[in-house]
Amino acid sequence: MFSTTQVFKGWAAALALFGAFAAAQAAPEVIRIGVATAGGGDPVTWGGSPGGVARNQQWLEEEFKGSGTRIEWLFFKGAGPAVNEALSNKQIDFAYQGDLPSLVGRSNGLNTRLLLASGTRNNLYVVVPPKSDIQSIKDLKDRKVSIFRGTNGHLVAINVLAAHGLTERDIKGVNLDTGSAQAALVSSGVDAAFGGSEWFKVRDQGLARIVYSTQGQDPAFTRQAALLVHGDFEKAHPAEVQRVVDVFVRAAKWASDEKNRDALFATWAKSGTPAASYKAEFENQSLAERNTPLLDAFLLARYKAVVDDALKLKLIRRSVTVDDWFEPKYLRAALRKQGLENHWTAYDAKGKPVAAGGASVAAR
């Protein structure tokens, strides 16, 4: 027979062993972050997002140094749709992704949570060869036009066409990724292309001309990007999710400081896109407005509008909710911890500043 003391010691040892096992399981061996762009540079990185700052400065690697957890960045030439596939196959734990593809993933049953904004109000441009007779959006009718379908630029392109009395059927759309679109335009394989700030480099080389820009127009014609986490990873590793969000918020603060404007563009330029391109993309625009991490009413409204438009255009088969998809608790904790609760201006659904004291993150 065992004495009470022996039984107690046995249980204590077992509990200690279980606790050690649980602790070992708590820290993942690797955190895999998928980025919806092919990126560039060595090591591969990207620009236009505070996430690119965290990548370049290796702040996540610094955060998890000594914890036994390594950081792995994966870049996808196939952009948002390829990221969705990786999420579906559980090949990544976090995703930097645009609004439309992330909502397509959600409509297809992907288990994700949207944690914070990471690059808002991204502009869209239409470029043509230098000697093209195309001068406006209306001139795109019956022309061969590159559109990277399934990305967050796709839906904005459709809305821009609609604002000028055209539909996607009025153009001869060609589905090309960024690199292929540039090659096609330069070689006259297409008559025009929709795209982002990557086209400034081509323009500055004298190989393209911009005939349309969303800069200074209705923010409804801009694109949003965010950091998402796979629901299974969040459930298993909430502490690690918080640490990742903390780093992204730190990067957002640095990327929002006007004193760092030149340094920010130089950092992003390590991706292969010249600093001059980012200077042009952000001309007359506040860094804080573009690099805010807030889940404010503007971001919520834009994602809801994307759901409505995507459903109408049959880009998704069923409607999905957004309010319960946004998960602001990690962002709230990060803002509180870093003393940044009032650092960024929140915007209303129309993109106008909210009065002091207005809600800065989604109410959940």
Results as ranks from 00 to 15, higher is better:
residue 162 A to N: 14
residue 245 V to S: 11
residue 331 L to Q: 12
residue 34 G to Y: 01
residue 19 G to T: 15
residue 104 V to F: 00
residue 271 S to I: 04
residue 212 Y to E: 14
residue 8 F to Y: 14
residue 189 G to E: 03
residue 252 A to E: 01
residue 60 L to H: 06
residue 125 Y to G: 07
residue 202 V to R: 06
residue 108 N to F: 04
residue 284 N to F: 06
residue 152 N to W: 11
residue 294 L to E: 01
residue 209 R to T: 08
residue 92 I to Y: 02
residue 335 L to T: 04
residue 163 A to M: 03
residue 280 A to G: 12
residue 91 Q to L: 02
residue 160 V to R: 04
residue 84 N to Q: 08
residue 30 V to P: 09
residue 70 R to G: 10
residue 22 A to E: 08
residue 110 L to Q: 13
residue 10 G to V: 06
residue 340 L to M: 09
residue 283 E to Q: 15
residue 42 D to P: 06
residue 60 L to G: 01
residue 219 P to H: 03
residue 201 K to I: 07
residue 331 L to G: 07
residue 49 S to T: 14
residue 358 G to V: 05
residue 50 P to A: 01
residue 321 T to W: 00
residue 305 A to T: 09
residue 108 N to Y: 03
residue 253 K to W: 02
residue 201 K to V: 04
residue 80 G to D: 14
residue 205 Q to M: 07
residue 361 V to M: 04
residue 311 L to T: 10
residue 63 E to N: 07
residue 200 F to R: 00
residue 48 G to F: 12
residue 58 Q to P: 02
residue 198 E to M: 02
residue 224 Q to H: 12
residue 106 R to K: 15
residue 324 D to S: 02
residue 263 A to T: 05
residue 346 A to D: 13
residue 136 S to W: 14
residue 303 Y to L: 09
residue 100 L to P: 09
residue 310 A to Y: 11
residue 75 F to K: 13
residue 266 A to V: 00
residue 153 G to A: 11
residue 317 R to W: 05
residue 223 R to T: 15
residue 56 N to C: 10
residue 182 Q to Y: 02
residue 180 S to R: 12
residue 224 Q to F: 01
residue 199 W to D: 09
residue 71 I to T: 14
residue 24 A to Q: 12
residue 140 L to N: 07
residue 203 R to Y: 04
residue 74 L to Y: 07
residue 220 A to Q: 14
residue 74 L to C: 03
